[in-house]
Deep mutational scan, measured.
Amino acid sequence: TGIVNVSSSLNVRSSASTSSKVIGSLSGNTKVTIVGEEGAFYKIEYKGSHGYVAKEYI
């Protein structure tokens, strides 16, 4: 489990790349469930599926 550490919002992406499609966003202080790691990204549970967020903001 981690907490989103941004002042505005954090993009949730379809894969572990900054060039991948943005599938949603999370507000600061949102609790997320981390299910894996891939490079500079965490794989998280997101809306019944999975998404990826940059580690530096969790």
Rank of each mutant, 00 (worst) to 15 (best):
S7Q: 12
G28D: 09
G48N: 09
A40D: 15
V32S: 01
V35Q: 06
N29A: 10
N5W: 05
V32L: 05
V6F: 06
G2L: 07
V6C: 14
K43F: 06
Y52G: 00
T33I: 15
E38F: 09
E38C: 10
A16F: 04
F41W: 12
S14R: 11
G2F: 05
Y57F: 15
E38M: 07
E45W: 09
E56H: 12
I23F: 03
S9Q: 11
I34K: 01
S15V: 07
S25T: 15
V35I: 15
A54T: 07
A16P: 15
G28Y: 14
S7F: 06
R13M: 15
R13P: 00
K55W: 03
V35T: 07
G51L: 01
E38L: 08
K55F: 03
Y42P: 01
V32K: 00
N29R: 12
T30H: 07
K43L: 10
T33V: 14
G28Q: 13
I23L: 10
G36T: 04
E56N: 08
K31M: 14
V32I: 09
T1I: 14
K21M: 13
S19W: 06
K55M: 08
T1D: 08
A40R: 09
N29C: 13
A54S: 11
S25L: 13
S14Y: 10
T30F: 07
K21L: 12
S7E: 11
Y42T: 02
V12P: 00
T18E: 14
Y42H: 03
I3F: 10
V4W: 03
S15C: 11
G51S: 02
S15G: 13
S25P: 05
V22I: 14
G2M: 07
S17P: 01
N5V: 13
A40P: 14
G24Q: 02
E37Q: 09
G24H: 02
A40Y: 09
S25Q: 15
Y42C: 04
G2C: 09
S8E: 13
I3K: 08
F41P: 00
G51M: 02
I34Q: 00
K43S: 03
I23P: 00
F41K: 01
L10Q: 05
G51Y: 04
G24R: 02
K55E: 01
E38P: 01
V53I: 08
A16K: 03
G24C: 05
S14P: 03
A40M: 12
I23M: 08
G36H: 05
S7K: 14
H50Y: 15
Y46M: 04
G51H: 02
G48W: 05
L26A: 02
V12K: 00
S49R: 12
H50Q: 07
E56L: 10
K55S: 05
F41I: 01
S27P: 15
N5K: 11
G36R: 04
G48M: 06
T18S: 14
S7P: 11
S8A: 11
S19K: 12
V4K: 04
V22T: 07
G48F: 06
I58M: 05
S17M: 07
L10K: 03
S19Y: 07
E56Y: 09
G48H: 07
A40S: 11
G24Y: 04
G24K: 03
Y46N: 01
L26W: 02
T18W: 11
S15W: 07
L26Y: 02
L26N: 01
I58T: 03
G39Q: 05
K47L: 14
G51W: 02
K31G: 06
K43T: 05
I34F: 03
G2P: 05
N11I: 15
T33M: 10
Y46K: 00
R13G: 04
S7G: 12
E45C: 11
S15M: 12
L26H: 01
E38W: 08
N29M: 13
V53Q: 00
N29Y: 14
A40C: 13
V22F: 07
N5T: 12
K55L: 04
G28W: 11
N5Q: 09
V35H: 05
G28A: 14
S20E: 03
I34S: 00
I23W: 03
I34A: 01
A16G: 06
E56M: 11
L10E: 03
E56A: 11
S20C: 05
G51V: 03
S20I: 02
K47S: 09
T18R: 12
V22Y: 05
T33G: 04
G36N: 06
S19C: 12
S14C: 10
I44P: 01
L26C: 04
T1Y: 08
L10I: 15
S17N: 12
S19E: 13
S19H: 13
K21N: 13
V4Y: 03
A54C: 12
Y46G: 00
V12L: 03
E56G: 07
V35K: 06
F41N: 02
K21R: 13
E45V: 14
S14Q: 14
T18D: 14
E45N: 09
I44K: 00
F41S: 03
K47H: 11
T30V: 10
T30I: 08
K31N: 09
S7W: 06
A16I: 05
S25R: 13
A54L: 15
V53M: 03
G39T: 03
G39D: 08
E38K: 07
K43A: 06
E38I: 09
V4Q: 04
S17A: 08
N29L: 11
I58P: 01
E37W: 08
V6H: 12
R13A: 05
Y46P: 00
I3D: 04
T30P: 03
K21S: 10
S20M: 03
Y46W: 11
Y57K: 08
S14N: 09
S19D: 15
T1S: 13
T30D: 11
E45Y: 09
S9C: 13
S17C: 08
T18A: 14
S19V: 10
A54G: 10
S20R: 02
S15D: 10
V12Q: 00
T18Q: 13
Y57S: 11
N11W: 09
I3S: 06
S8D: 15
E56I: 13
K43C: 09
Y52V: 01
E56K: 13
Y57W: 10
G28I: 11
V12R: 00
S25D: 07
S14L: 14
S14H: 11
S25K: 14
V35L: 15
Y52C: 03
